[in-house]
């Protein structure tokens, strides 16, 4: 038996496979396809203090080896989540983590206080990197001062594990990572989507209603791997790797580059059963390479 469990701060995940927010709904949408309890945990969709309708259609453009989205954090708000979704999710024994977004520090703090009371939710992922909402997250995540201010304020009211999701749309991701670590983050996850754009030449118009959107999928994987490696070498807190992971090999590449766990995002759209396949694939890889403990893979890149 290989050991697949990893720790993110105080939480033990039964394996390193998580799902990326915004690609996994509230988890229950996957019930027909997989046993959610096979996952290390699942991160549910981006939630804000107040309900949001999101951006206008079209919100998505298919691009080579990936896609752009400009959903704009459509969600029914944190109270709806707590009253109507959370109780239903407590039946799973995998760790449930909510991704929290906001447009002001105050919004983040009020919502984080509410989420702090949820017994079966051991962590939140703070989204300071959504590229699709004005003053929505990314404004905080692209400067050290902005990132620090929101993380510090949330840290004061949120007592459990605080993961901060970083934007790749910055000059030096390690500066932001260090700033959020200093402000009290227990872990960092990266990367959120890369700001991009798609054009319809026939119509001479942008494809997305918002003109720009966030790029995800295999197209971003090399950028994500590079940033995970840089951040792993810059901070002490555990790093969660995200960006174009489609299979177990991709996941292992991220772990070798320094990720303690990984989030699968866009891959869920292509194959809703991919997460469990990645768990099994990591196990196979470990057996083939005679590795007993998955923790031995973390940052094991031979440079």
């Amino acid at each position: 038996m290989v050991k697949l469990a990893v720790n993110i701060d105080k939480i033990q995940l039964k394996n390193p496979v998580l799902t990326a927010s915004g690609t996994f709904g509230y988890g229950k949408e996957f019930e027909d396809f997989i046993d959610l309890d096979r996952l290390g945990g699942y991160i549910v969709k981006g939630t804000t203090l107040h309900p949001r309708q999101g951006n206008d259609y079209p919100r998505m453009a298919e691009t080579p080896a990936g896609m752009l989205n400009a959903v704009g954090l459509q969600n029914k708000g944190v109270d709806y989540f707590i009253d109507s979704i959370y109780p239903e999710l407590t039946k799973y024994n995998s760790h449930m983590i909510v991704n929290l977004s906001g447009s002001t520090v105050e919004d983040y703090v009020i919502a984080a206080e509410k989420l702090n009371e949820l017994e079966h939710m051991p962590a939140i992922e703070l989204n300071i990197s959504c590229p699709n909402v004005k003053e929505g997250g990314m404004a905080f995540g692209v400067s050290c001062a902005g990132a620090e201010s929101v993380v510090k304020a949330v840290r004061e009211v949120y007592k459990k594990t605080l993961i901060v999701k970083l934007s790749p749309n910055v000059t030096d991701v390690t500066e932001i990572a260090r700033a959020v670590e200093a402000a009290g983050a227990d872990s960092v996850s990266l990367i959120n989507t890369l700001l991009g754009m798609a054009v319809d030449a026939e119509k001479r118009k942008p494809i997305l209603s918002t003109v720009t959107g966030g790029l995800s999928g295999p197209a971003v994987k090399p950028v994500a791997l590079r940033m995970v490696w840089q951040v792993f070498n810059a901070v002490k807190v555990p790093v969660i790797g995200i960006g174009g992971i489609m299979n177990a090999t991709d996941a292992i590449e991220f772990m070798l580059a320094g990720a303690t766990a990984v989030e699968l995002g866009t891959a869920n759209f292509i194959d809703p059963a991919v997460t469990v396949k990645v768990v099994e694939g990591i196990e196979d890889y470990m057996k083939r390479h005679s590795i007993d403990d998955v923790n031995d893979l973390i940052g094991a890149l031979e440079v």
Partner: peptide
């Protein structure tokens, strides 16, 4: 026939405005 990302309600890309919102 809106363009879809996932097809099973998780990516929220294929929305249409309705009387009850997107």
């Amino acid at each position: 026939e809106n363009t879809m990302g996932c097809g099973f309600g998780v990516c929220l890309c294929c929305v249409t405005p309705t009387q009850e919102g997107n």
